[in-house]
């Protein structure tokens, strides 16, 4: 009886402890929000930002959309690295070794499959439109890539073996294609006497559109691969999959 009592009091003490901790963190979070709000609301220096500079250089950028100009011309280096972040994500997801067999083929829902048949072409079309629109208004490679990725996700939902049945290596090449092209454009500019990623005025529009197309393709592919969640097994791997990673010789 006493034992039970003690356990009870202990538990309540624990609870009190936890609640004190959460109270403390609540206070700290409240303090943080107050500080953030204070920093946000107090008038500080109020610079103009880069809008006017972007506008001034827009004529040379090769596109009419300001955001696209920033993304693929003024700050194209960021975009290049960002594509590498996607690539990195794919590499990491693929590097995680499955600890149990890849999930079973889902039951294919007739509604879903017919919907997919209907939706996917439409999505590709919308993606294309977004790409094309990107040069003059809202839209661009990432939006298009996202739509394409969604189309890919739908396809995977109807056939989970889709990624693994693709010809060997094609997927990897597809993902790398955009990056190779981007790098080639960047280094090619240097080889032609410009700076890294510097386009000539005459060819800027064309280069940017080409970049957008290729980037959208790679992005869409990467997003779909993310959804796949693991490396599509290659035929030779099928037997090896499913081994838990507790082998000897591992560092414990």
């Amino acid at each position: 009886m006493r034992c039970v009592k003690m356990k009870g009091s202990e538990a309540s003490g624990k609870r009190r402890h936890i609640s004190l901790l959460s109270l403390l963190s609540l206070v700290m979070l409240a303090g943080l929000s107050a500080a953030l709000a204070w920093a946000f609301l107090t008038p500080g220096p109020d610079p103009l930002g880069l809008a006017h500079r972007v506008d001034a250089a827009l004529a040379e950028s090769g596109v009419e959309s300001r955001v696209t100009a920033v993304l693929l011309n003024y700050r194209a280096y960021d975009t290049l690295l960002e594509c590498f972040v996607l690539f990195l994500g794919v590499a990491i997801v693929w590097s995680l070794q499955p600890s149990r067999p890849v999930r079973q083929e889902p039951r294919v829902d007739p509604v879903l499959s017919s919907l997919v048949r209907l939706l996917v072409p439409l999505m590709v079309l919308v993606g294309g439109y977004l790409l094309w629109a990107g040069s003059s208004q809202a839209g661009g490679a990432f939006q298009a890539g996202a739509i394409l990725g969604a189309a890919g996700v739908l396809l995977i939902l109807t056939s989970s073996r889709l990624l693994s049945t693709m010809p060997k290596g094609l997927l990897a090449w597809g993902i790398c294609l955009g990056l190779f092209f981007f790098l080639a454009v960047a280094v090619g500019a240097v080889a032609l006497g410009g700076n890294f990623l510097e386009y000539r005025r005459s060819s800027a529009t064309m280069i940017i559109i080409a970049l957008e197309v290729v980037a959208a393709f790679s992005i869409g592919l990467s997003l779909a691969v993310f959804f796949g969640g693991s490396r599509p097994e290659e035929p030779s791997e099928r037997t090896a999959a499913g081994r838990p990673p507790h082998g000897e010789g591992e560092e414990p």
Partner: peptide, 20 residues
């Protein structure tokens, strides 16, 4: 962005060993 690249690839390398 470079920080993110560094962080993500470090994480990827960390979990490469595959052990729990």
């Amino acid at each position: 962005i470079t920080l993110e690249l560094v962080a993500l690839s470090s994480v990827g390398l960390t979990v490469l060993s595959g052990k729990p």
